Computed example of a mutant assay.
Amino acid sequence: MMQLQTLYLVNGGDWGWVVGSVQFLVNNIRSKSMTGLIIFDKDQTLIDSACGEKFIQSPTDQRILPGAAEAVSNFAKRGYKIAIASNQGGVEAGKKSFESAIEEMKFCLGLFPEISIGLICPCYDGKSAWMVKLNDWEVYLRQKIGVGSGTTNFGNFRKPGPGMINFLIAYYKSVPGETWFIGDRPEDEQAAEAAGTNFMAADILRLRFQQSDNC
Rank of each mutant, 00 (worst) to 15 (best):
E104W: 01
S116E: 04
M164N: 08
I64K: 00
T197G: 12
I84M: 00
G163V: 11
G150L: 13
Y124M: 14
G146E: 14
C215D: 10
A192D: 12
D43S: 11
D213Y: 01
P176F: 14
E104Y: 00
G150S: 13
R208I: 06
G183D: 01
R206T: 08
V72Q: 03
E53I: 06
I38L: 10
L119I: 11
Y140E: 03
F98D: 02
I120M: 13
K96R: 12
L168Q: 09
P59I: 09
K77C: 03
L65K: 07
G196M: 02
G20A: 06
E114C: 10
A201Y: 10
I47S: 04
F167Q: 01
V91T: 03
I64W: 02
L46H: 05
G52T: 01
A50M: 06
S31F: 05
I165V: 15
C215Q: 11
L7H: 14
T197C: 15
V132R: 13
R206L: 14
M200T: 05
K144Q: 14
C121D: 00
I29Q: 07
L207N: 11
A202M: 12
F157P: 07
G67K: 02
K159W: 00
M131D: 04
I204Y: 14
L119D: 08
G126L: 12
G118P: 02
L111T: 01
E187S: 09
T45K: 04
N153Q: 07
A101F: 15
G183Q: 05
Q88E: 05
L168R: 06
R158H: 03
W180F: 15
G94A: 09
V18M: 15
I165G: 06
P122T: 11
V26M: 13
G13F: 14
P186N: 11
P122K: 10
Q44H: 14
Y172N: 07
I64M: 00
K127L: 12
I204C: 15
M1W: 04
V132P: 07
A83F: 03
V147Y: 10
S174H: 13
L134G: 00
L141I: 05
S100E: 12
F154Y: 15
A76V: 03
G163P: 10
